[in-house]
Design a protein around this nucleic acid. Structure first.
Lengths: 185, 185
DNA sequence: CCTTCTTAAATGAATGTTCATTTAACGCGT
DNA sequence: ACGCGTTAAATGAACATTCATTTAAGAAGG
């Protein structure tokens, strides 16, 4: 039984970092607070990662890895696909919030290779569905995808002002109904 | 010719603050840099506003004041309404970015009174349009509004990954076409 | 019109605090 | 006993904020 367990600490650190960054962003995050959450000393952060910034990037990369392809596209049933995207987002609010921070604080960074590739695959899948007639063909696949993603994530972006217009239970079907109307031929 | 002109300085300060906050958020903003942008000394900031935080709030309030009702709703032509929202957003990227920061950094704050009221008015307008038959009546007005707003702002939220799928020129019509499909009876 | 007095505006160096990062010592497991 | 994982404390840079001082614009008085 390893009472010394670097891997476990590393894992705890990543989880605490996600929580801290999701709440405050990089600039607002405090290394001390984050280390305390992880149950380690602040100094130890630096033996695992390249400082606060490095930790932020590491968390981002872990999220990308776990999130891309977490919800495989089903181009023949885009409403359900959007619904599943929504479900996943709703189940991981911390991750969504982290990504929102990342988009602002790392606005200039290029899109990661894996993400770009995943996007291409989705386009290809939609184009196939258009050819087989399950998706309307009068709009380019990229446009269809943009709409599906926008609707799938709509409740993430909407603030409290818009959010309270609809109950939690209704949110999913708002998305699926709208996508159905938009993509069926 | 007034070489001393507090009102002008105050104005310059607000503009510089918007630029600085839009770029870095509150936590990342630097008072020195912001003051230099405004062409004033850092100390002067504190004679106008309650520190960095107070300045942030002041900029937010100014934006809310200028933005609410900047695009009056036309419930009988929601596609065009969404298009106009998009136009305005596209014309003021700094403001949009500022609001994105605000949503994250002030997540817990209640919705301002003016915003809530403006929302109620929009709902009422849509309900009227539903009664007169220009908007589908099989969905509650709140749901319709949520969809319209989500689509109007879709290009603000989408990152570079999705954004490059469609050219600038197409963006507006993607929104208006989609809204038309979603809201017509 | 000048000169002096008064008040407001503005500055920027000094202050004190907050924080990321470094360092040096400690002790567990082998 | 040795080396690595870990810590607590030390360091110092970065910043927000304050404040003593300077500068400018009127007001009062001659």
């Amino acid at each position: 039984m390893a009472t010394r367990d670097p891997d476990r600490k590393r894992q705890q650190l990543m989880e605490a970092a996600l929580a801290e960054f999701a709440e405050y962003g990089v600039a607002g995050a405090r290394v001390d607070r984050l280390a305390k959450r992880a149950g380690i000393s602040p100094g130890l952060v630096y033996s695992f990662f390249a400082g606060k910034e490095g930790l932020f990037e590491a968390v981002y990369e872990a999220i990308v890895e776990q999130t891309v392809d977490a919800v495989p596209i089903d181009a023949d049933d885009l409403p359900e696909y959007a619904g599943r995207l929504h479900d996943t987002a709703a189940r991981h609010p911390q991750v969504m919030r982290f990504l929102a921070w990342y988009a602002l604080e790392r606005a200039e960074r290029p899109v990661p290779e894996v993400v770009a590739r995943s996007m291409d695959e989705k386009i290809t899948a939609i184009e196939a569905a258009q050819r087989s007639g399950t998706v309307r063909s009068d709009k380019p696949a990229g446009e269809v995808l943009a709409l599906v993603l926008a609707l799938a994530n709509m409740w993430q972006h909407q603030g409290e002002d818009v959010g309270h217009l609809v109950t939690d239970a209704q949110r999913r079907s708002v998305i699926t109904d709208a996508v159905r109307r938009l993509v069926t031929p």
